[in-house]
Amino acid sequence: MDLSNLLSNYEEGVAMLLFGIGFSNLLLHKNLIKKIIGMNIMDTSTYLFLALKGYIVGRKAPIVTDGITSASAYVNPIPSGLVLTGIVVSVSVTALMLSLTIRLYRRYHTLDLDEISTLLKKEGK
């Protein structure tokens, strides 16, 4: 194992670590709000990864300034575009999840998904 690659790309390593944390939160936590937090961590870590991959040291944001038109002066704008699209998606998904959570809480007065399942079984419908 060559760890020098990992050290020189430690930012990406952090992004992956965050992805793992978010993923396991979303999968394993019982509490719905914590699940949603996990989902947001997961999505954000992907955006961090994309932003890191799009950044090139010493270059500027891709907005033409001082009349420099050479492409080599700027970073790649596409990852930023992808991040923006992804943020829109994750905002709408978060809103939907929160609204579902509110509905469940009003009905069952708990945020614990397993408890809701037991209550449903008791209802027996």
Binding site: L27, K35, D43, M97
Partner: peptide, 21 residues
């Protein structure tokens, strides 16, 4: 009804895991 909202929540959770990957 309770079942569908719970099912929709579980569906969203699984789907979000999938789309994250």
């Amino acid at each position: 009804n309770g079942r569908t909202i719970e099912a929709a929540t579980r569906y969203m959770i699984m789907s979000l895991l999938g789309s994250g990957l």
